[in-house]
Structures are given as C-alpha cells and as structure tokens.
Design a protein around this nucleic acid. Structure first.
Lengths: 142, 142
DNA sequence: CAAACTTTTGCAACCAAGTTGCATGAAAAA
DNA sequence: TTTTTCATGCAACTTGGTTGCAAAAGTTTG
C-alpha cells in the first residue's frame, strides 16, 4: 500500500470508520475532487465500485462527520470532505457557489458564512449559504 | 368568481401569466400555506389537479418570478410566493429555517440574508441561506 | 490453522420525485 | 363559427438514490 492510501486509512481510522479498500477509494476521490461532488460524479471516477456501495460509504462517512452534504439546486446532493480536525457538524462553514452554466459547485473557503440572529427558541444545527450564478471560468470563456 | 379569486387573477396577470382556473388554485394554495411548500404538499391540497399540472404551473410561475424555489435538505424542492412587487429574483432574500423534527420550512421574513463578497468575476444571480435545526414549536413540545 | 461469525459488497429490484409524450378539452384569434 | 393555440390529465418514463439478499471478505474464537 502506498503512502497516499495510508493517509486516507488514518483519516478513516481517525473518524472511527473501518478502512476497507473501497472506503479508501471513496475518501481519495472526494479529496482529489477538491470540491463538493455528487454520487454520479463519484460513480464516474470509481468505475470499479457499484453505485450502492459508494452511496453506503457516503452515508457512513456522513454519520461519522467525515463528509458533509449540501444541496446546490442541481438535482443531486453533493458531498464534501470535512477539512476541520474536530468532529462537529458546525465546522467548514464557508459559502458555496453553484455555477448555472457548468453545473459545478465551488467552495469559497475564504468566505465564511456570516451568522444571523434566529428568533427565540429556534435552535440552529447547521447552516448552508449557497450563491448561484456564473463562475469566473464560464464568464470569461464565452 | 369571488373576490379572493379575483385577487389571484390580478396577481397572475400582473406577472404576465394567463390566469386559468388551475393556476388560480395553485396561487391560492401557495399563498394560503404561508410557507414554502413542496409539490407533494400541493398535491394533497389540490386533489382535483394532477401532479403534472401542478408541476407545470410551478415551472411557469418560476419563469415569471411569481414563485421562487428552494432546497431545504428534505428531498423535495419547495416553492414560495414572491411577496415583493418587483419582478427580480433578488428580492425576498430572507433566511429560511428547516426543522429537522417536523420537516417544515419557515421563512424568517424579518431576517435578511447578509451579503458576502464574491471572488473576482463570479456573478451572483440568487442566494439561499438555509438554517437547519429545531423550530420553536418542536423545541417546546417535547 | 480452521470453524463460526460479522461486515462489506455487487447486483438487481425497487422507490420517490418529478418530467414528458400524447390525445383530449378549453380558450383565444380569425 | 372555424381555426389555431394553449392547458390539462393520464400514463409512461427518467433520474437519483436505497434496499433485500446472497456471495465475498474480513474478524474472532477455539
């Protein structure tokens, strides 16, 4: 096993996930993507794995707070590796940008989500800030 | 036709939508709900209409900026009447709250979405700020 | 090590949300 | 009224994702 694999193995271990070969592949693919990806995109990247297996990995990862999921208005949920070391959901709270041209979703890592005041007795567990529009690449391409 | 119907008729007209009986029903149901509702909820409220017809109404309404849609993490898109008089997408930008207990989505009309700075050449067309957690009713119920 | 047990996986079948093709019916234009 | 356009209901389909189940892989125990 090469050193990259070992890195993901430790990452999984660290989140209490038994590191099977497939799970390492999924973690690697998520990391390599560098942006939130859909189940379909993972299927294309991991031709050796069945859709259901990938799906089960993602559910497991989410339970263990290794990934978080977000809806961007495309009709597929996207998954993103949690980069924070802690295991709380409330980390990684940066703004996301969905491009309506190329249908990709970007993390604006340097743009934290501004917080808001909730009415009394509302309890926030997670926050999603999604901007939709045209990304820089698409704007300059045409 | 009663005065309520006439009100919705004018609303549709105002947005350049031909006011058919069905469309008035959908507009009325959306308004009466007072919060973002899913296609399924509309189906339950409008037993005389077919799912596909409701769906087509919603698409049309969205094109004409009479409703806007939002994803709240439940697996259905929700639709909400635009309350602003103008026809721009960028109105009605308040925060939404999705309750993970009762699976309802609330508009926090008094909580405007704080804006963020985007990287160069990114063009924002719409913004979605969704908080998930436990709503006041559910918190106090148990 | 082998036997017994648990977990993971692939496959196929299934499910839910939503859309589309098409024939019919209603409304608007001529 | 006739023609033409538009809206609707129904059924079939599409898409994204999940589930049941048997086989394979991995763990534990003797």
């Amino acid at each position: 096993m090469n050193s990259h694999k070992k890195e993901y193995l430790l990452l999984l271990d660290d989140h209490g996930i038994r590191p099977t070969a497939n799970r390492i592949l999924v973690a690697e693919a998520l990391d390599r993507a560098g942006r939130p990806v859909s189940l379909l995109e993972l299927e294309d990247a991991l031709l050796t794995m069945d859709k259901s297996s990938i799906s089960r990995c993602l559910s497991l990862f989410r339970e263990h707070h290794l990934v978080h999921s977000l809806e961007d208005g495309s009709d597929a949920v996207r998954y993103e590796l949690c980069h924070s070391r802690s295991h709380h959901e409330n980390d990684d709270q940066h703004v996301h940008f969905y491009c309506e041209k190329c249908h990709r979703t970007f993390c604006l890592h340097d743009t934290p989500i501004p917080s808001v005041e909730l009415p009394d007795d509302y309890v926030a567990l997670s926050v999603n800030y999604m901007v939709k529009g045209i990304c820089a690449a698409c704007k300059n391409k045409k």
